[in-house]
Amino acid sequence: MILEGTVLRGPAFDPVEGRVVVEDGEIAAVEEGSARSEDIILPAFVNAHTHIGDSIAKEAGGGLSLDELVAPPDGLKHQLLRETDREEMVEAMRRSLRFMQDGGTAACIEFREGGVEGVAAIHDAAHGLDIDPVVLGREELAAMEAGDGFGASGARDGEFGRERTATREADKLFGIHAGERDSHDVNAALDLDPDFLVHMVHTDQLHLERVADDDVPIVACPRSNLVTGVGMPDLDELAATTTVALGTDNVMLNSPSMFREMEFAAKLSDLPAREVLAMATHNGAAIAGLNCGLVEPGRDARLLVLDGDSDNLAGARDPVRAVVRRAGTSDVAEVVLGAAD
């Protein structure tokens, strides 16, 4: 497979005219030269924090507080999850995964409710699709063993020391929500030595120093934080402290669109477009341990091709900035996620 156009190459996403050569599902070469296409070729997205099960309750719970919406075990989402039969759940998750795939998302890091059965359900939902959910089980150690790690709700909800130890011994991911409602659970979350933190809206200087010292990545979900009314993360400060990735969080509250999340993050902060694009691609891939997120030889060919001559993107002077702040699903020309011959 050969893709031609403006290639956002390497970790700096340098726009170069040329082509990407794909062989056996891997990027074999990135070659500069004249291109016969106006397409823009970039890495596919990695959505670094999702709750895909909430697809059964889109736009439910308007006006409720964060705790009323999502706090275990009696928040609205948990009530609705318990009331939903498996077939309906799997189909709802499949539709969200397909939406994400069609919008150029290669993978997501999913905090999956429902124990072992919840992990099995999202695997069934993803069957036959090219998007790869990295599934962090919840509620029981067996769910971690059945999935790719453990996703903890937050230090205020439990101690999670046993789960952290077991996850480390299994060499799997351990992520935990922290600093979403307030800063009171951040130190306890950091004491668990997590592989990554989610949210970090509310932080003190001590927390940021600990994050920097331990090099703990953070997944920010600014649209979700806005909707739930908990405040907004200081993306500039977080990015100056550690690696930051982007997630769309709860499908009940937000469309799982990385285009929307990127645009919102870019306009919320003073970060360069290249840094925001890294948050939506390479940084999430690094947290998940995936060999994608950059257009360079040796990476898995998980790529997004945008029509640079669409009515929306035509005339853009800065292709990286246009991708981050302007592009949307209507500009998608091709999504390359499977192995290519």
Score class of each variant (00 low, 15 high):
M100F: 05
D171P: 02
T84V: 07
A107C: 03
L97N: 09
V135P: 10
A121G: 06
L129V: 10
E139Y: 07
T167Y: 03
A178P: 03
R210W: 07
A92G: 10
G137W: 05
A166E: 15
A220L: 00
A121S: 15
G175L: 07
H207P: 00
A121N: 13
T203V: 13
G115I: 00
F99E: 15
F160I: 08
G179S: 04
D182F: 04
T165F: 14
A120K: 14
V198S: 07
I218H: 03
A212D: 12
G175V: 05
C221T: 11
G161C: 08
E83H: 06
A106I: 03
F196Y: 14
F196M: 08
L81A: 15
E91V: 13
G103M: 02
L129D: 11
T105Q: 05
L129G: 12
E113G: 07
V116E: 09
A189F: 08
G154L: 06
D191N: 12
G151P: 10
A155W: 11
V198N: 02
H127L: 14
E180Y: 10
D124F: 06
E91L: 15
V116S: 00
R156C: 07
L197P: 00
R156E: 14
I109S: 01
G118I: 01
A121E: 15
R138C: 02
A106K: 00
L197I: 00
A106Q: 01
R86L: 08
V119P: 02
E159Y: 12
G154P: 11
D124S: 14
V135L: 05
V135S: 09
A152Y: 09
F174T: 04
H127D: 15
C221S: 07
G158V: 09
R86C: 00
I122C: 06
A92H: 09
H127G: 14
E145Y: 08
M100I: 07
G104V: 03
G158A: 08
D195N: 10
M200P: 00
D185E: 05
G151D: 06
R94H: 13
G128D: 08
R164V: 11
A212M: 10
D130R: 14
C108H: 00
M89G: 08
S96E: 15
A155V: 02
L129C: 11
R162Q: 13
L208W: 08
A143Y: 01
P133R: 05
A121W: 02
D130K: 14
L136S: 09
E110D: 14
V219C: 02
G147T: 08
M89C: 04
A107H: 01
E110Q: 11
R138H: 06
G161S: 13
E209F: 09
